[in-house]
Design a protein around this nucleic acid. Structure first.
Lengths: 203, 203
DNA sequence: GTCTATACGTCGATAGAC
DNA sequence: GTCTATCGACGTATAGAC
């Protein structure tokens, strides 16, 4: 089976199909953003988008795959802040968290995807989450190294451990904050940032 | 409506009913422990427990409530390590994480409950998660204060922020580790512990 | 290729018999 | 207190219209 045939089976490689798929995805994203955390079934999305649920299946293969695509698009859709080279990993996560707060239901969607990823019968969600965590750890670890070289993060900490910690903290604090807006999300992230800074040097 | 009537509607207040409920719950816990992260529907659980799904509903009200009860019991069921008064909050979370690893499916169950808690139509899960986070933050913050008084944690950090951070880190690192056993769970928690320790004092 | 119509099996929930 | 019967909704699968 060629790559083209594979792609065809899953989503249609031809201009018309690709465009249609994107069109449906755009509508779906809009529906999610408007709905907030409300219930989302394949059939409900299909109805709001204006097609049958079988059409969604045709383009996306499964509900999980559609949800992954919607999350990917929603996440990268907002205003991208372009962090300066030297921004702290925690600062990056904090900006992401702030942006997430603007999009209703996005954190819920993420949480659902991660929970599904932990169960065997959701391969699409699992692949998404595993890949995303791995890539995030890599990217952030590299940023830690840059910060260490610039003297902005203590040199005696393992970059990968810092990355994993920052991701975990960001994810966990967002859900705590969503359940209880009094939970100290910003304060806790700021705290982590300070803890990672090198000991004060009264040069 | 009296408390007794309320309890009756939900779970049966009379000795026989209570005993039966506990009996069913015990079987359900055993089923979960044996099954690992496998699929869990009200009907599947009922079949393995040896009753109909209607009976489960009678005693637990909803699938969510049953899952919450199973998680509560599984979590507190294992060997309780009784931490020394002076144990660090991170040490406490690390022990909990280690224990969780021994019970297949427990972290998945927790993750499912938290994800459900973020959606409006799961009040039982939401109440469970909100309460649990709040209580955990309180308990851990108190522990932070004790550690600060004893000079084991730097005095200049906010106890509640530390507690929220430790919980988030523990939760997030467990899911990262589950998706990728190479993810630095222990290392990241150890790192957080070190960061919270007071600056070395060469007395 | 794109999409609809239709059907299958399972789900959580509910009503009423016993 | 526990069952059977039934409900509407779900994700998925497939045949075939165009």
């Amino acid at each position: 089976m060629t790559d083209e045939q594979l792609a065809s089976a899953a989503r249609g490689p031809y201009p018309k199909g690709i465009a249609r798929r994107q069109e449906i995805l755009d509508r779906a994203i809009e529906v999610f953003a408007r709905r907030g955390s409300k219930r989302t079934s394949l059939r409900a999305i299909a109805e709001e988008v204006g097609v049958t649920h079988a059409a969604l299946k045709h383009y996306f293969g499964s509900l999980d795959e559609l949800l992954v695509e919607v999350y990917r698009a929603s996440e990268s859709g907002g205003a991208r802040p372009r962090h300066p080279e030297g921004a702290t990993p925690v600062e990056v996560m904090r900006d992401a968290a702030t942006r997430n707060r603007e999009v209703p239901g996005l954190v819920q969607l993420y949480s659902t995807l991660v929970a599904s990823a932990l169960e065997e019968e959701h391969p699409a969600a699992r692949e998404f989450a595993t890949e995303r965590f791995a890539r995030q750890r890599e990217t952030l670890a590299e940023r830690v190294r840059r910060n260490q070289a610039a003297g902005r993060i203590r040199p005696d900490v393992d970059p990968v451990a810092v990355a994993a910690l920052a991701i975990a903290a960001s994810d966990g604090l967002q859900t705590q904050w969503l359940l209880d807006p009094d939970a100290p999300q910003e304060a806790a992230l700021a705290l982590l940032d300070e803890l990672l800074a090198p000991p004060a040097d009264p040069s």
